[in-house]
Lab assay of single mutants.
Amino acid sequence: QIFVKTLTGKTITLEVEPSDTIENVKAKIQDKEGIPPDQQRLIFAGKQLEDGRTLSDYNIQKESTLHLVL
């Protein structure tokens, strides 16, 4: 699982696999929060994550925290 922290300070927990794409993660966030993926920007280690890449591409491991910017 990974954590996604929103600007409001809320933390969302997501069940993911390293092979999941960023697009996939955004879809999971939409399921939980109702935020359309095209409004979501995910930041990890100061980098904006691209939809077509996977979590493992960015070396995002379990218990990692991503930041969600709208």
Rank of each mutant, 00 (worst) to 15 (best):
K5P: 01
Q39H: 09
I43V: 09
E15A: 09
K62T: 15
A45P: 02
G46C: 09
L7N: 14
Q48V: 15
E33Y: 08
L70S: 11
D57R: 02
I60D: 01
G52R: 09
G9T: 03
V25I: 15
L14G: 00
I12A: 02
K47Q: 15
K26V: 02
K47E: 12
T8E: 14
V25Q: 00
L14M: 05
T11G: 03
I29G: 00
A27P: 00
G9L: 03
K28S: 04
L49R: 00
R53F: 12
T6C: 13
E63A: 09
I2D: 01
N59I: 04
T21L: 11
F3I: 07
N24P: 00
R41W: 08
H67V: 13
L70M: 12
I60H: 01
D20W: 09
K10I: 10
K32W: 06
I60R: 00
K10G: 08
I29F: 03
D38Y: 12
E17V: 12
I43S: 09
F3K: 07
L55T: 02
K26A: 02
L68N: 01
E33V: 14
D31E: 14
E15R: 06
T6N: 06
L14W: 01
L7R: 09
G9N: 06
Q40P: 02
T6F: 15
R41Q: 14
K10T: 10
G34H: 07
I22Y: 01
L70Y: 10
L55N: 00
D57I: 03
S19W: 11
G9Q: 04
N24H: 10
D20S: 07
V25D: 00
S19N: 13
V16E: 00
L66M: 05
L68G: 01
K32S: 11
V16A: 08
A45G: 14
A27N: 11
Y58H: 04
G9F: 03
R53K: 14
T65P: 03
P36D: 07
E17P: 03
R53N: 10
Y58L: 06
I60T: 02
K28P: 00
T6K: 04
F3P: 01
I22E: 00
E33S: 11
P37V: 14
G9K: 04
E23N: 08
V25F: 03
E50T: 06
G34E: 04
E15M: 15
S64N: 09
T65N: 04
G46I: 02
D31I: 12
H67R: 07
T21S: 08
T11H: 06
D51V: 06
I29T: 01
Q30D: 05
P37C: 11
K32V: 13
A27V: 11
H67E: 12
T54D: 03
D38T: 10
D51Q: 05
I12Q: 02
L7S: 15
Q39M: 11
T65A: 04
I22T: 04
S56H: 11
Q48W: 12
T11R: 08
T65D: 04
T65H: 15
E23S: 14
N59E: 08
I22A: 02
T54C: 08
G52S: 13
K47F: 10
I35K: 02
P37K: 14
N24C: 14
E33D: 05
Q1C: 14
D51K: 04
G52D: 12
T13M: 11
D38I: 11
A27M: 15
